[in-house]
């Protein structure tokens, strides 16, 4: 059992239950058709009847994360300037906020 003082979690019990649930889900899954009959263009990704202009096999699953959070990552890159003074400013600011929160609570 993992306890934090405010919460607890038993990974072993969790894994046992997940194993049982996975077995149930596998039974449901096995009731379905496993594959499909190959026909022309059947396994082409749908693109409103047209061909996808740039075929891009998804090897980098993080692509969408970076794309969607581009502005956030841009901001993060800018504040990681590599200058130690900047990091110290951030540290002081963060500690001040945390002390403020602790005092408030």
């Amino acid at each position: 059992m993992i306890t934090t003082g405010m919460g607890s979690w038993s990974p072993l019990v969790f894994l046992i239950c997940v194993a049982f649930i996975a077995a149930v889900v596998q039974i449901i899954r096995s009731l379905g058709e496993g594959g499909f009959r190959r026909e022309e263009d059947k396994a082409e990704a749908f693109f409103s009847g047209g061909k996808i202009p740039i075929k891009n096999r998804v090897t980098d699953v993080y692509w969408g994360f970076f794309e969607a959070m581009g502005r956030y990552y841009g901001w993060m890159k800018r504040i990681h300037s590599g200058i130690v003074n900047d990091y110290v400013y951030w540290f002081v600011l963060l500690v001040t906020v945390m002390i403020g929160l602790v005092m408030l609570l």
Binding site: F36, E44, N56, R57, V58
Partner: peptide, 14 residues
């Protein structure tokens, strides 16, 4: 109905 339908996986999918 979904369980009796074909389970299509696109060629370029992972």
């Amino acid at each position: 109905k979904l369980l009796v339908k074909e389970n299509i996986v696109p060629d370029d999918a992972v």
